[in-house]
Amino acid sequence: MERVPVLKIGDILLVSIQIDMSDQTAVTLQEDLAERIVATGCHGVIIDITALDIVDSFVGRMLSTIASISKVLDAETVVVGMRPAVAITLVELGLSLNGIRTALNVERGMELIAATRDDDLGYDDTPGDVESATAATSP
């Protein structure tokens, strides 16, 4: 059985699914991730599904479960890179992926996790911050 690698980048675990997963592979990934979150103490998980050409209800449920598990373990999960055709199909299938946060790409996903962590840690927004942040994030 193939395994999906889990990479640690800074405070974030990055999972890039590059294969057509069997259900067993998906379940194993779910278990691997829970262990790695605890072992590394990471507070963010990014699951990159750019390479997935379909997401069916099983994989959808796996994504939801990972999001819930990581929440319990104090980590934020963001699913990134869903293809348009996959999103259209999921809507038709009736799968809403409740409770999952999504972003267009890995970069946006990291921003989303950082923003959420800042919120959690209670940083306040001051006008001066807006100025410097806009300058820092514009290309």
Binding site: A115, D119, D125, T126, V130, A133, T134
Partner: peptide, 12 residues
């Protein structure tokens, strides 16, 4: 996006 930008301020 303005609100987001202020939240995104990297002050960790």
């Amino acid at each position: 996006t303005g609100v987001e930008a202020s939240r995104r301020h990297p002050r960790r």
